[in-house]
Simulated assay, not measured.
Amino acid sequence: MKLYYAETLAPRKTCAVAKYLGLPIEYAFVDLKKGEHKKPDYLAINPNGKVPCLVDGGKSLWEADAIICHFAQRAESDLWPRDGRQIDVMRWLSWNSHHLYPHAGSLYFESIIKPVLGLGEPDPAKVAEEQGSFRKLAALLDQHLKGRKWLLGDGLTIADFSVAVSLPYAKSAAIPLDEFPEVRRWHDQLNAFEAWRNPFPVRPVTPSANAARNA
């Protein structure tokens, strides 16, 4: 399996799950700043021009959530439950994709990606707006996590890796994580895993990569 990635939010979850499961992955770094995701050879495997993308044999698989499902299936891991909990996993993947992630991702973009790409300083009005939206959704998540170790209860699943993907950047992206004690506790549990703290493979460090990785 060959995983095309960048050191940004969506690829982070795929790298974390692959490392957690100990999968034999060949990693291919895609330099977004150089526009490598828009070059013909990359568009041939992912016409969306986005990262991550997985090539497994003759199959090309886009979208981070689909990739982590595939990883868990390949490993025959309970991260992708083989019972009725699959529906709950899909519920949380969908909720994150349509609700939490867009707002957390916007904060990540304003505070981390814009400076790396030379797009200027964060827009204070945009940051305030996205923080307000994040707070509403994080309050729902905080309530759900009361009495639960993980999103689905006692068992860790790919839903935890997906929904939490923006939280390692909370401080540098002005994400108000500390206002939500249950969400903070839940994320602290993920931080106990080396695969979550340091998901990306080691590669020669460039200034732009270092800024994104350590933000």
Rank of each mutant, 00 (worst) to 15 (best):
L61T: 10
V127I: 10
A174S: 14
I68N: 11
K114S: 13
A72P: 14
M1C: 06
Q143F: 03
L32G: 15
D142T: 00
P40F: 06
R184M: 13
G120H: 04
F200E: 14
E110P: 04
W196H: 12
N191D: 12
D65H: 01
I175M: 13
F71K: 03
D41P: 14
A215N: 13
G153T: 08
C15R: 04
W196D: 15
A64C: 05
L23C: 09
A104V: 06
P24W: 01
D56K: 08
I87W: 04
H187M: 01
Q189H: 14
V183R: 03
G155N: 15
E7P: 06
C53N: 12
I158M: 06
L107Q: 00
L145M: 02
A44T: 08
F193Y: 03
T14K: 05
K146V: 11
L177C: 07
G153M: 10
L152W: 01
I113T: 14
K59D: 11
I25E: 14
W150G: 12
F134P: 04
K38V: 08
D160P: 10
E182K: 09
K136C: 13
K114Y: 01
H70F: 04
P201H: 07
A16Q: 02
F71L: 10
E7C: 00
V163K: 00
M90L: 05
P199C: 04
F193H: 07
R197D: 12
L23P: 10
L145K: 05
A174G: 11
H187S: 11
A164M: 06
P181H: 03
N210Y: 10
Y108F: 11
R213S: 14
P124A: 07
E63K: 01
R135V: 10
H98Y: 02
A211E: 15
V17R: 01
R213G: 15
D160T: 01
I68D: 13
G132L: 01
P181T: 09
K38I: 11
P124W: 08
A170R: 01
I25K: 07
F180T: 02
L190A: 12
A138I: 05
H98F: 09
A128N: 12
P102G: 13
A18N: 11
L9I: 00
S133Y: 10
A139T: 06
F29P: 09
P124T: 11
S97F: 10
P81I: 00
L9G: 15
T206Y: 00
P115G: 09
K2S: 14
A170S: 13
F180Y: 00
T14P: 15
D65V: 09
G58L: 03
Y42R: 04
P47V: 00
I68F: 01
K50W: 04
E194Q: 12
R135W: 06
G57V: 01
L61N: 02
Q189K: 10
Y5W: 09
E121W: 07
D65G: 10
M1D: 14
V163M: 00
V205H: 11
F200R: 05
P204G: 13
E130I: 02
R148M: 05
L107Y: 02
R213E: 11
K59Y: 12
F180V: 06
N198P: 14
L140I: 02
N210K: 08
S94V: 04
D56S: 12
A195Y: 02
A16L: 01
C69E: 04
P11F: 00
I68Y: 03
M1T: 11
E194D: 15
A75S: 13
P201L: 03
R12C: 02
V165T: 12
P176E: 07
V127E: 14
